[in-house]
Amino acid sequence: MFFNFVFLIILIFIIFLLEISLPIIPLGVSFIFIFIMVFLLKASKDKDFFSQKIRYVFFTAIIGGFLLDCYSIFFPGTFFLSLLTVTYLSKRFFLLKFNTNKILSVLIFGLVAGFIYQFLISFFIFISSFFQSTIPQIYFNGFYWLNVFQAIVLNGLLIVFLFWALNLIKFSKIRI
């Protein structure tokens, strides 16, 4: 259990570094969010709400959110609370409605989770910009909507791709 924990922390750090410092990734793609959602999809078969795997998912959301907040110009807690809330809502409500054996179902789950995540981030930025002058206000213009749309679609597609790839690896291992 201890080694799993250490391995997870190292993995979170690597994913975070790739998200923040890899210049080639398209704008709006959040590796931490994608990783949490795929992890949650894989752990969704556990009936117990606070099982070991689900605890790891929440732990990833806490550490990932903390790191993203460390390197953000927004009020501390914007990413942390957004990630925790979207993880909780996904486990508590969305995963019950979607059949994770179908690709289309996983895609819709990814899009819904992505939408909630983007909505929460925008909401926290919007609220905090009233209290702190250094935080830029969101302009709800075409550029903003394009950015949000791009983030939701790209994150949704990457969740499907990663989930599908992990399933494929699992099945190919069984065949061997």
Partner: peptide, 24 residues
């Protein structure tokens, strides 16, 4: 050392800070 865009807001990260005399 990094670049991020969130909700249409873009910012870049520099490896120098307050210690080296930078300010907003």
């Amino acid at each position: 050392i990094g670049r991020r865009t969130e909700s249409g807001i873009t910012w870049f990260l520099l490896d120098r800070g307050e210690k080296q005399g930078l300010r907003s």
